[in-house]
Structures are given as C-alpha cells and as structure tokens.
C-alpha cells in the first residue's frame, strides 16, 4: 500500500531522516519506535507531505506528491500528538471536519454517508454524550478522542497515529488499541503509529521500524525488530533487561 524509498529530510544543516525505506501492506500495523530525536514524527509528516523530503513515497502505486490534498486525505488520515482547538466549536463540528475531503458535487455539498460516518465515529470513541459540548471545555484525553473520532470519520485507508496513547488513561489506552485493531480488520487498511511504549508496540504491532538519529536500525516483523541487540543499538541501554525487570515486579 505504502512504499517509502530512501526518505531523507533535512532541516537546514541538520539531517532528521537519513535514507529511511520501508513498505507497508494492507492489514499491517507498523510501530515506529526509537529514542527522542530519532525522527519518528518527521517520518509521519513526510508521508502526509507536511515536510519536504528527498526520496520517493508511493501510495497505492502513485507518487504521494501527485495527489491533490483532498485525494490524499481520502486515503491517509493522521492523528496528531497535540491538540489545541481555537474557538468554541462543538465536538460534533470538529469530528465532522473529517468529512471535508469526501464532499462532492455542486458547492461540495454532497456527502451521502457523511452523517452516518460521523455518528459511528462518535459512538466508537464514546463521545455521543459530549457531541454538543464545546471543545474548549474538554480534558486532554477527551480532546484526543475527539480527533481520533475525526480521523475515523475521515475513513482513510492508511491511518497515521503520532503517539496515540498520549493524554489517555489506561482504560482509554486499552480501548484505543483494541479499537484500532478492530478498525484494521476491514480489508485494505493499514496503520502506522509512533509509540514510546515498547510493550504496547510489541503487543499490537505486526511490523516495526526502529530508528536512531534518523537512521534505520531495523525494520520488519515486530519479533525480528525488537531483539535485545537492536534495542541496545537504538536506545544505547539494555531495554530488554529493563522491561523484564518492570514486569518481574508484577509477578512477585
């Protein structure tokens, strides 16, 4: 579905991503991991053309740079890390923005299934009760769910998540990950998410991309990527021992 070859992103003198390549097929859930400054979020921005990059990214066989913004938005949805809405929009209004790219026809009024999609997205994220609330009154976790609902309403084939568990308490983390898992069951869909929590990455990801300072440490199936050696290389510490120590505490 998505094929990235030799992506290189530079901010001035600084090379943030250096010759990163990977390939995502439908049904796959890619976890992008690595220490801070590894270029994880930049990678997502490159896919949505938020930053100019060298290399070649193709989506469904077409170069992403040939997509018009609406076209791209129908295929790729993105859940950002930080949310700060200006003005007192209602939850429903913000979620409905996800349908922007799907409007067609005269004055872009037509969107037959738009209302259903919005309602479903609100239901899936448990926001029906809050639908008429102003987004300015919401907590960080609620905001995260609002934008998750928005991207679900957007109904893309490729879902990009930038640290989706941020702001969420454990209950919603669990709900979020199983929700994405269910979402992925529909054929022709794929997910790429940036995560810090390697336990979550290991549990839910089918594939992983491990980065360090803009370079690929390893990519492929999660079991093959998250090896003690690779993690040692990426983080410069014995991640395996650390994680095992953490979980050992629970078994006593």
């Amino acid at each position: 579905m998505l094929n990235a070859e030799n992506i290189t992103v530079r901010y001035g003198e600084k090379t943030v991503l250096d010759q990163v390549s990977f390939s995502v097929d439908s049904g796959e859930w890619w976890m992008v991991a690595g220490p801070n400054g590894a270029g994880k979020s930049t990678l997502l921005s490159a896919v949505t053309r938020g930053v100019p990059c060298a290399g070649r990214i193709t989506l469904l066989g077409r170069d992403v740079s040939s997509y018009r913004p609406e076209e791209l938005a129908r295929q790729v949805g993105m859940l950002e890390q930080n949310h700060a809405a200006g003005y007192a929009f209602t939850v429903e209004e913000v979620v409905a923005l996800g349908r922007y790219a799907h409007r067609t026809g005269f004055l872009r009024r037509g969107d037959a299934e738009g209302e259903d999609k919005v309602r479903q997205a609100l239901a899936l994220t448990g926001l029906q009760e809050l639908a008429r609330r102003s987004v300015l009154t919401l907590s960080g976790g609620e905001m995260q769910r609002v934008f998750l609902a928005q991207v679900l309403a957007q109904d893309p084939r490729l879902l990009l998540l930038d640290e989706p568990a941020n702001h969420l308490d454990l209950i919603y983390q669990k709900q979020l990950f199983s929700l994405i898992g269910d979402w992925l069951k529909t054929p022709g869909r794929a997910v790429i998410s940036v995560v810090h929590d390697l336990a979550l990455a290991r549990r839910y990801g089918t594939h992983a991309l491990l980065l360090r300072q803009g370079k690929t440490v390893s990519d492929g199936r999660t079991a093959e990527v998250f090896t003690p050696q690779n993690l040692q290389t990426a983080y410069g510490m014995d991640v395996f021992a650390w994680m095992q120590g953490l979980y050992a505490a629970w078994q006593q």
């Binding site: 949505t48 938020g50 913004p69 003005y87 923005l97 790219a101």
Partner: peptide
C-alpha cells in the same frame, strides 16, 4: 464560500491539512 475551510483553519492549520484542505 470558504466557511468550511475556515472552520478547519480555526481548529488548527495542521489539522486542516490532514483533513484535506488545500491550505
């Protein structure tokens, strides 16, 4: 006529780009 687009901008320019607004 740009009301819908401005709604997206008013929520956030990055978000507007992600939902497909030709920012």
């Amino acid at each position: 006529s740009q009301g819908r687009e401005m709604n997206a901008f008013a929520v956030g320019e990055e978000n507007a780009r992600h939902v497909g607004v030709p920012v």
